[in-house]
Design a protein around this nucleic acid. Structure first.
Lengths: 217, 217
DNA sequence: TAGATTGTTAATCGATTAACAATC
DNA sequence: TAGATTGTTAATCGATTAACAATC
């Protein structure tokens, strides 16, 4: 509500890692930390940490540093961990099933309400904490229950059409595992793309670069 | 071998997406494209595309643009898709199993040789295209077969120790799904972190920001 | 040749880092 | 009070964009 100005994606992207690290420190019983010490441990600069936190108002204290408990709470709020967000999952193939069974949605601040699939043989099944419903019921369901985000684990081909429909029905964000680029930025709908193959190919490039360093040397 | 200078992570990070898009264009039967047209379709600038490609030597032609087939081949080489890279997977839990069964390693240029786990009840099982071996055999195996990278799908707690051992045994890169930050940069070993919860929390933040935009307006 | 479009250099923009006054 | 460390402004650095000469 009192954001000073638009916060850059770079800053937003670092918040989850801060949260993870602060949780770890809390678990170790540590009660305060300076930006300098945190920077050393996380491999960042103290300046960057202070700049980052100050985008959200600054919650340190001169001469003292940052109180771990307070910091954790502030980060949790920034990440919307206590906002009671809800999600649906669309496409219960291998990946969808793996996520439902294993991914800690609650830990990321989401409750998965339902999963949808067009394969009638799995409709009604309980997977993880939620039940698989018929794909045809999704439209009405979304209008009534207004889930915040949709997890897309369906096939690439239908992804753009399904995404468009979900956005029309009021979905506010997409967690996109389909490997298809969804061009919804124009609509102002945030999309987090998880392209595992891109990640693996990036690793491959870095290995290449590193190997040729050795060859040259 | 003839890299002009260090190529930035930002550029490297865009390569897989270029490759994906060019494959799509090729599948549509398109034979050439200008940086301008590609930029419009991908939501980038023509300048950026030309700069990016020129980091690797530039493979366009004035007055013509880029030949799709040639471009695809160049990108495949940059990504090391034909380098015959090999991988092992460490930790055959739900996630490891899901990857072995579903992820197209070959499509990312890797052949998975073996998976390792300490749970003897699954040792010997064939999952996807590879067999599960005893964790104790891993050390010797890595020394003999020299896989390029390791996919880490084991528990967070043991991740740092296992990673260190693998690096000592000659592993050249890590695909890290453990959620634990691995500090191996000092050793020059590239690590691709896939922190799904970070991704989900980022999405949550973007949804927050977008919602408060509306509230303000 | 004229038109198109690259490769590449220069300008701009944004993000990171450094510095320091404010203050706990 | 003196020391420490923040919040914040200024300087630097790098990445993106614009411009244009080279050339197909």
């Amino acid at each position: 509500m009192e954001r000073k100005q638009e916060i850059s994606d770079a800053v937003i992207g670092r918040m989850p890692r801060y949260y993870r690290y602060i949780c770890k420190l809390e678990a170790e019983g540590i009660q305060r930390i300076s930006s300098k010490a945190l920077a050393e441990q996380m491999g960042l600069t103290a300046s960057q940490i202070r700049q980052d936190f100050n985008c959200f108002g600054g919650f340190g204290q001169q001469g003292y540093g940052y109180n771990i408990e307070k910091l954790k709470e502030e980060l949790a709020n920034i990440l919307g961990l206590h906002s009671g967000r809800t999600a649906i999952l669309v496409g219960v193939g291998n990946l969808g099933r793996a996520l439902l069974n294993n991914f800690d949605f609650e830990g990321s601040g989401f409750r998965v309400l339902y999963a949808f699939d067009c394969d009638l043989s799995i409709v009604g099944q309980q997977i993880g904490k939620c039940t698989v419903r018929k794909a045809e019921e999704m439209h009405d369901y979304v209008l009534v229950h207004k889930p915040d985000v949709a997890v897309l684990t369906l096939s690439r081909k239908v992804a753009p059409a399904v995404a468009r429909n979900l956005v029309e029905d009021g979905i506010k964000g997409l967690w996109n595992f389909t490997g298809e680029d969804l061009h919804l930025e124009g609509l102002g709908i945030p999309v987090e793309n998880v392209h595992l193959s891109d990640s693996m190919m990036r690793l491959s490039q870095f290995v290449n670069a590193h190997e040729s360093d050795h060859t040259e040397a």
